[in-house]
């Protein structure tokens, strides 16, 4: 076969080929489909935008009268013109932070256990149970917190207040550590107890996102760590945790967003107070959503506008938290798995 040779095709002679213009003429059904689905999308957009715009519009009335002092006033007496979110917003944030700092280690531990340690055959049962925790209505958690948990945890509150009251966070005014017979009512209805109950609600959300991310860790890197002689925990420390960092941060913040908006469980546990209070063990706390639930019915037109302003402040906060969470998740290596 000496003579056959492949020759490369030379440059084409004649006029250069021009791509055809392809005119797509969708048929009637498709035109209806496209228009219809666009209309639905825009309708949803309109509904959602209407909620946001209406709230801001209504809130504007209250915000105009107070101005910047809305953020610094702790009182809530809209009809006297003295109201602000300083107390309720800090209360909300304090409850949410307590909730997340308790839920984070538990959810991280459970997610790691389910994804890395638990035997294959128990895995789907455990996942189902954790998801079930997310589906239990919040009023049920509230009942549990108010009627069972509160009585059990008071001893721990008292112990913390007795030994750690030198930390400002655990200081309780009105508690006398030297008197063993003192009443425990100074510890009831506190930020701490509400935070623990909210932690129960937040934990499954965080756990399912983290577990999802851990299950995406590349097998090759896992095996590489084992090949280098790592133990299972060593592998988790040097492969899984760094890989999943974005998912862990994102999941935690999504949980935080949920904790900020929780209403009914918090309402069942706390007793409302209107001052800025960082003593988490002390009786009484407040949150924006429980303020709305308590005050909406007796509010005047202006009072309602003030409540909406408070709600809007809370919404702005959860929005920032959620978008930061998505940004974290999207920028990390494990970002592809952030949809929960």
């Amino acid at each position: 076969m000496a003579t056959t040779m492949t020759t490369l095709p030379g440059p084409p002679s004649g006029p250069a080929p021009v791509p055809r213009a392809i005119a797509v003429q969708p048929e009637l059904g498709d035109r209806i489909f496209t228009r219809g689905s666009l209309a639905t999308g825009l309708l949803v957009l309109a509904i959602m935008a209407a909620v946001g715009l209406f709230l801001s519009f209504e809130a504007a009335q209250a915000l105009r009268t107070t101005g910047a002092s809305f953020l610094t006033t702790a009182e809530w007496q809209p009809d006297r013109g003295e109201f602000g979110v300083a107390a309720v917003l800090t209360g909300t944030i304090a409850i949410a932070l307590v909730a997340v700092s308790i839920a984070l280690p538990v959810s991280l531990g459970s997610a790691l256990f389910i994804a890395e340690v638990a035997p294959e055959r128990f895995r789907s049962t455990l996942v189902g149970l954790v998801d079930l925790m997310a589906a239990v209505p919040s009023v049920v958690y509230g009942l549990w917190g108010a009627y069972l948990f509160q009585g059990q945890i008071l001893g721990v509150s008292r112990w913390l207040a007795t030994w750690f009251s030198w930390i400002p966070l655990f200081e309780v005014s009105g508690a006398d550590p030297t008197d063993p017979l003192s009443s425990e009512t100074v510890f009831t209805a506190s930020t701490f107890i509400a935070g623990v109950v909210v932690a129960l609600m937040v934990m499954p959300i965080q756990c399912s996102i983290m577990r999802e991310v851990f299950s995406q860790v590349p097998t090759g890197e896992r095996e590489g760590a084992f090949a280098l002689g790592a133990t299972r925990w060593g592998m988790i420390r040097i492969v899984s945790l760094p890989f999943a960092r974005g998912g862990i941060i994102g999941g935690t913040m999504l949980g935080l967003g949920r904790a900020l908006g929780e209403t009914i469980a918090v309402l069942l546990i706390i007793s409302p107070r209107f001052d800025i209070n960082f003593h988490i063990l002390e009786a009484g706390s407040n949150s924006v959503s429980s303020l709305i639930a308590l005050r909406y019915s007796e509010a005047s037109g202006f009072g309602l506008s003030a409540l909406m302003a408070a709600g809007l402040a809370l919404f702005a906060l959860t929005l920032v938290v959620n978008f930061t969470a998505s940004a974290f998740v999207a920028r990390s290596r494990s970002g592809a798995s952030s949809e929960a």
Partner: peptide, 24 residues
């Protein structure tokens, strides 16, 4: 559709809406 991006981010934002605000 070019509108899909906007709709998706608005829907994402609304998942953050505290449920009591929907009631309010």
């Amino acid at each position: 559709s070019r509108a899909a991006g906007i709709v998706r981010s608005i829907v994402d934002a609304m998942t953050a809406l505290p449920s009591i605000l929907a009631g309010l």
